[in-house]
Amino acid sequence: MSNIIVERPKVVCLCGSLRFQRLFDSERKRLTARGIIVLAPEPVDEEPTASMRATLGELHLRRIDLADEVRVVSEGGYIGDATRREILYARATNKVVSAVEANVVLPTFSA
């Protein structure tokens, strides 16, 4: 065994609508090339049932739990209900939240 200590790479979870799959792929490649571990939702081949959607939503929250940062993938500022929920969850668990789009308005907790 080697005595070389390797710093743990940053872990980023991508969130957003899978309608932006091209942007997800691009951001995943960009971050990976920078030595960052990327977690992201995967599209499913079938139309998800309500139960499957709930399960996939919970699975994605567990990805957020594992991440150091949540990065929102969007186009034209679009943030759907599921992504909004994920952003608020990330903020509630003290994750850094960033966005691919420079001027996108990310939801915050309302007082």
Rank of each mutant, 00 (worst) to 15 (best):
M1I: 11
S2C: 01
S2G: 00
S2L: 05
N3A: 09
N3H: 12
I4D: 10
I4V: 15
I4C: 08
I4N: 11
I5M: 00
I5K: 06
R8M: 08
K10V: 10
V12F: 15
L14R: 07
C15Y: 00
C15I: 04
G16M: 03
L18W: 11
R19V: 08
R22Y: 11
L23C: 01
L23T: 01
F24G: 03
F24A: 02
F24W: 04
D25C: 07
D25W: 01
D25T: 06
S26E: 14
S26Q: 14
E27G: 10
R28C: 15
K29C: 11
K29M: 13
R30A: 12
L31H: 03
L31V: 03
T32S: 14
A33W: 04
G35C: 03
I36Y: 01
I37F: 00
V38L: 07
A40W: 06
A40R: 10
P41R: 07
P43F: 09
V44H: 02
V44T: 08
D45Q: 03
E46I: 10
E47G: 02
E47H: 10
P48Q: 05
T49Q: 13
T49G: 13
S51G: 10
R53E: 07
L56C: 12
L56G: 12
E58K: 10
E58P: 00
L59G: 06
L59M: 10
L61N: 01
R63K: 12
D65R: 08
D68R: 05
R71A: 14
V72M: 00
V72N: 01
E75F: 12
G76C: 08
G76P: 06
G76Y: 10
G77N: 00
G77V: 02
Y78K: 03
G80Q: 03
D81P: 02
A82D: 03
A82H: 04
A82M: 07
R84I: 02
R84T: 13
R84E: 10
R84L: 06
R85A: 09
R85L: 08
E86P: 09
E86F: 13
E86I: 12
I87E: 06
L88K: 07
Y89D: 04
R91N: 00
R91M: 09
T93P: 02
K95I: 01
V97R: 07
S98V: 02
A99W: 08
A99S: 15
A102H: 09
A102P: 02
V104R: 05
V104Q: 05
L106W: 08
P107F: 14
P107R: 07
T108N: 10
T108I: 09
F109N: 08
A111M: 03
